[in-house]
Simulated assay, not measured.
Amino acid sequence: MSGQNESPYYFVPHPSRHPISAAVGLLVMLGSLAAWINEHELAPIGVVVGLLWLLYTLWHWFGDAIAESEGGMYGKNVDKSYRWSMSWFIFSEVMFFGAFFGALFYAREIALHQLGSLDYKLIWPDFSAVWPNNGPAALVSTFKSMQPWPVPTINTALLLSSGATLTVSHHALREDHRKKAIIWLAATLVLGVCFLFLQGFEYFHAYNELNLTLASGVYGSTFFLLTGFHGFHVFLGGTMLAVVLVRMIRGHFTAEHHFAFEGAAWYWHFVDVVWLGLYIVVYWL
């Protein structure tokens, strides 16, 4: 927020059409997605229409919020509410990934050992409680697990480097070195795009050379669930940083007031930390 005023009161915006418009877009998109799963012919068109409508609404909604910020309508209390809102949002994301890590822990440390215990030897005498495996009775086709080298390790280096470049950009902005901040933020975006490109290559390699798919038992399910949702969050965080970069180029931030940058940076660092957990638990253990 570059135009923050010193008012102790909250800014109350005028009634807006954006919430109901976004709800309509979500309803059309998710309803069409459900129809797509049930193989309705026109459902893919509905998904695209709903998504485009939602993106159109968010474009104007965020544009209004940016205009209010640049117009000096946001005071200290609004700034504080944004900080708390972003903090709780990231906390909800922590719980989101916590559930997925919990599912992986249960499958590996509890369910797998139960199936390999003496109680189940009469049913599946050849089953070995070794992770990963094809499941009892080998119901899943043979596959190879994903190894940490080279792509996951390179991606780890990319994300850690992006966290460092983002921090440099933030310090440059706080020191009012705008050009330096823009350059390092752009470098952060480039590293994020490289990460997503390599993850796409990793998935291609998994499907075509390792026979590792979503149908590869609980290992395949948890692998693609965790890494796929993390990739989506990298894309989302990159989108936030891209918007911040455009705003920074337009001169929207000052050294004192730039919470849009800070909020996006918090989210990006959270994504980095989640990847470190994934890298250790999914690829190494």
Rank of each mutant, 00 (worst) to 15 (best):
T213R: 15
G200P: 05
E256V: 12
L189F: 09
L58F: 15
H233M: 04
A23M: 13
P19F: 04
L118V: 13
S161N: 07
W131H: 01
T167E: 11
L55N: 08
E93N: 09
L158N: 06
N133W: 03
G237D: 02
A260N: 10
L160F: 06
G50S: 10
E70K: 06
R174F: 03
I110Y: 08
P125T: 07
F143A: 05
H14A: 15
L42V: 12
L212T: 10
D119W: 11
D176Q: 04
M73G: 02
P125D: 04
F197I: 14
T165C: 01
I123K: 14
G31A: 13
L191V: 00
W275F: 09
V12I: 15
E70V: 00
G75M: 02
G116D: 00
F235M: 11
F105G: 06
V234D: 04
D119Y: 12
W131P: 09
S216V: 14
Y279V: 05
S117F: 04
S128N: 08
N208L: 11
L30I: 14
G31H: 06
G31V: 07
R178A: 06
V48W: 15
K180F: 08
T239I: 09
G192T: 01
K180Q: 13
L139T: 11
G237I: 00
N208C: 02
S169H: 01
W61G: 01
L210V: 08
R178Y: 05
